[in-house]
Design a protein around this nucleic acid. Structure first.
Lengths: 201, 201, 201, 201
DNA sequence: TATGAATGAGCCTTCATTCAT
DNA sequence: CATGAATGAAGGCTCATTCAT
């Protein structure tokens, strides 16, 4: 269905993908307008529909693209089984920051996916959303939780870290420039604090 | 400006407030439509404008109302200075659940306020938003952090709990019915786990 | 149909009539709103409809009232047959200025009637409009045109004076206060100039 | 701001301009509806906003266009300085009638501009209105008033002619078809009459 | 392939009109 | 009589979508 799109130059593809990601990530599905994307990255209105048929199709595509790309990177950089919970969650944030090199708004888009409440948007991306969650679970399965006396505790902490980092990342996106290194330091503060109390790994 | 509205029967007032809270909380300012509110609670389109002049005015009013009401309840139920961090944050969730008795979507609306990115919405509620944040800070000032060797740690933990509870609450709102007791139990799990490791109070 | 209305105190009647005249005269039929009239003179929205059934009915009534009142005054003050064209047209303006004492916007309303283009408005007041025009013609019939060699000329001049005074009056209404004496002086300038050249009477 | 519009075919431009002129001229700014224009000339509702952003923008544009066009024609056809008052004012009406060839409602629109009382409309066209009035003054400066013993008289007469012709023109527009030649004859009657009495030129 | 003119459904808002009190 | 709450149709405007070029 999006074959035509892939026949273009990679550069132009990425320009359009980044435009769409930015607008969708910042405004959410319903409030994002195709005109915004035209302004953001030049490609004409007709072209978006030529490649993606509809706003729905575009959203499906971009979300699915973002998820696939993120899963791929996670796969490459987080696969060394046997990492501890803390190191892995921190590493995961570093991967996200790396992703921003190519697709600056990809991590924010993924956060917005997980928080999206618009029913239409949810139905359009249900597959991508689930496959992202599943991929994360697969990664989490490999975590070495032996440091924790009660395994259940580690899951609660995992959830807390995830929620907290998501919140912080959203804040960083609201600043004029996303300060990558500062963001990672901030995450590290939490990890170090937790390590001090709750398991060393 | 909303004098007319307050002259109506309390029941009807609350019906409209709840309708507006629900739609704004679920869809956000920009994507909430007055038509949705008409469907939600019967009051005709014209009536919303009769009372609130504009969608902007309605949003301002509802947000401000929600914030005032929440601050009031916090004031009444969280004022015993000297509570520990954990007990206070848990108690705060209980207050929110109590608020749902009268205004089911009030807590979700407050979460949405804190996450809102639409610039128009932000400008409409800047006062309310700030007064809410300030009120929370005043409550947090009274927390007894003596259990924590490093006070800084307690602030990181506080942030983590807040982010986590917000996430969980959003999930509970996505279910067909908000299971209040289950929600509180879930929050307690986190608190108990943390108490085990990080201070007893 | 407007019996009910006439059963009120004269004062209140005139307050409402003046409110309606002002709004209709200033904004024209289509753009005048009943809310404007409420603001202008206090009588509640429901009351207008109680007395006049509809905006159409109100317009019909007010226009008809204005026309009747004006014709009455013209009848009283311009009836001395045998006046010359110039004196009569000037006297007519003086009558209008007198009318403002009781109904400040009556003369402007009459001008607006004669210029109205809105089809609905035209159909609502066709009778009043015609009876006004007819009444004027009856007055003009009594004019002594013996000063004019060619009677046709006097009709052209009459039309010119009428158009000119109407224009000037509109200008005066646009000022913060209608300066009555100044208005009459301005009219006199034209009359005197014309007398100099075109007949003495 | 209206670049897009000018890139269309001249024919289509003129069709839309004429539609807008007609509706604005007949109904005035406030009561003119874009729907009326849709009915009048086919272009869809969205298209008007595609080109003009808002009803305000459309009004500004059309008024400004009309004024510029009229001033241009006046410049071409009335520039022979040294014309007498009468000939010039008559010539001016002929220019207006010529303008109707391309833009049938342009002269009526200009009359409506000069009579408009709606505050919003006034603010939207203040520049155009003033530039029109100024252009007329520049033309009037060239008038040869030597026939008049008292120059002041000539200004009064000028005002009278202007008011009268405006009135007559409005009447002609209210007929099913604007009878151009008849209109000019009517104007000439006044001019001839005046010449007979008040200066020959 | 690429553009943007063109369309119409949907949303915010106004306002004449009705009706319960 | 008097009030103003309540309603819905109509108008301004946005935006996804189509289509001629």
């Amino acid at each position: 269905m999006n074959d035509k799109f892939y026949e273009q130059k990679k550069e132009k593809q990425d320009m359009m993908i980044n435009g769409a990601m930015k607008i969708f990530a910042l405004k959410g599905y319903a409030h994002a307008s195709v005109d915004d994307m035209v302004k953001e990255c030049g490609a004409s209105k007709g072209l978006w529909f030529h490649y993606f048929e509809s706003k729905k199709g575009l959203y499906s595509f971009v979300v699915s693209y973002a998820v696939k790309y993120a899963i791929l990177e996670y796969g490459i950089k987080l696969e060394d089984k046997g990492m501890g919970l803390y190191d892995l969650l921190l590493e995961k944030e570093k991967v996200k920051v790396d992703l921003m090199g190519m697709y600056p708004y990809l991590p924010l888009l993924i956060l917005s996916i997980l928080n999206e409440t618009d029913e239409e948007a949810l139905s359009l991306m249900s597959d991508a959303r689930e496959s992202y969650i599943e991929a994360l679970e697969n990664i989490y399965v490999g975590i070495d939780r032996s440091e924790f006396e009660e395994p259940e505790d580690s899951f609660l902490i995992q959830k807390m870290i995830t929620s907290t980092f998501a919140d912080i990342m959203r804040d960083y996106y609201h600043k004029p420039v996303f300060l990558k290194e500062e963001y990672i330091s901030e995450c590290e503060k939490y990890i170090q604090m937790l390590k001090k109390f709750l398991g060393k790994k």
